[in-house]
């Protein structure tokens, strides 16, 4: 749904923009809940409009939270709403859990067009339905104009751990094969291509996607998966460095094997950036026992999010704590973490 397509229900039309009262707990707040949130996320728990949700859970749970401040709010391939759902769904799934329930906290800036909020909330609802998770509780606050960037979203997620799943960075083991589920850097460069002052014309789309179904199938293969990580901020390089440090192992990747979309590669060249350091929002890095790599690859490739899954390297017992890359020319270099955000170069 685009902004043009969204027709807001009657009472909301009186306010084409968010006003302070929408977060005040009075009638305007109630109208937002009744006419926007409940219809979008409609489910038993939320409809009860109680102070808290009550959930029946069995066994261990995986529990994660993330806050989304992306600018611009709408970008090629997605918006802040679906990103907020997919991001937390993925974080929960990375521990080998089945994501089930989400909370949504919205911080709205006074003046945000109601139509935009409608599109974002409906986009969240669609993403949640696709991922098979239920939004069971939420909160909305409104801040004075100039005190926020339109909308910030916090999502917190709960998933039920799969039997026997033990997936965490410390389990990376020498001999493991390292797999990525697709091209690197799509999300970050899609955002970059529409950011003020840096706009360039390119057909790059964010890879924002929920990965829980794909990961479910990967784990269903019975393959010995040691680590799963979604390489978001800091990109592949940050994820690999974190894992190498956590498990005290070496990581050696083949630079030529890292899948990068041609347009993304060209945009990175132009801006002097390295796709290995650019954020992804729909990709996973998997550390897998070598003998199970083919099974895992097969499961990934059977999903649209994983058609470009490929092996990029291995875990070593040398150069512990360090990520190294073999360059196309055959030399070895260190792939370090970025200090801050990657900055476009002068020339």
């Amino acid at each position: 749904m685009t902004i043009e397509d969204w027709t807001c229900p009657m009472p909301l039309r009186d306010h084409p923009r968010i006003v302070m009262g929408h977060g005040g707990g009075g009638q305007l707040s109630a109208e937002l809940i009744e006419h926007l949130f409940v219809p979008a996320f409609g489910n038993g728990e939320l409809t009860e409009l109680a102070d808290a949700a009550v959930l029946d859970l069995e066994g261990s749970i995986s529990f994660s939270t993330d806050t989304f401040t992306v600018h611009p709010r709408f970008f090629p391939g997605g918006d802040i709403g679906e990103l907020a759902i997919n991001g937390t769904v993925n974080d929960v799934a990375m521990r080998g859990a089945v994501p089930r329930y989400l909370s949504v906290g919205l911080v709205l800036e006074e003046g945000l067009p109601m139509a935009e909020l409608g599109v974002i909330v409906n986009s969240m609802a669609r993403a949640a339905a696709h991922a098979g998770v239920t939004v069971v509780t939420g909160d909305t606050k409104v801040v004075d104009r100039g005190h926020g960037d339109g909308i910030y979203i916090n999502t917190t997620g709960i998933g039920i751990m799969r039997d026997g799943a033990d997936i965490r960075p410390q389990r990376a083991t020498p001999g493991d094969v390292i797999i990525v589920s697709g091209t690197m850097g799509d999300h970050g460069m899609a955002i970059m291509s529409v950011r003020e002052g840096l706009e360039f014309e390119a057909s790059i789309r964010s890879d924002s996607a929920a990965l829980n179904h794909m990961i479910g199938d990967v784990l269903d293969t019975g393959g010995d998966v040691h680590v799963l990580r979604d390489p978001t901020r800091g990109g592949l390089a940050a994820s690999l460095n974190e894992i190498a440090t956590a498990a005290d192992v070496g990581v050696l990747i083949e630079e030529r094997s890292i899948p990068v979309d041609r347009t993304v590669a060209a945009a990175c060249e132009m801006l002097g950036m390295d796709p290995m350091y650019v954020a992804n929002e729909g990709k996973v890095v998997a550390f897998v026992a070598a003998g199970d790599a083919d099974r895992v690859l097969g499961a990934m490739r059977s999903h649209p999010e994983g058609v470009n899954a490929t092996i990029i390297g291995e875990v070593t017992d040398t150069h512990r704590g360090v990520v190294a890359a073999r360059t196309p020319l055959g030399s070895i270099r260190v792939v370090d973490m970025q200090v801050g955000e990657q900055l476009p170069r002068i020339c």
Binding site: T316, T318, V334, R345
Partner: peptide
């Protein structure tokens, strides 16, 4: 990233890697 020191630090810091 074009500075010699940063380039050395980022890409060439661990000379023992040559033995890999």
């Amino acid at each position: 990233a074009e500075g010699a020191c940063a380039a050395y630090y980022l890409y060439g810091r661990f000379k023992e890697l040559e033995a890999t």
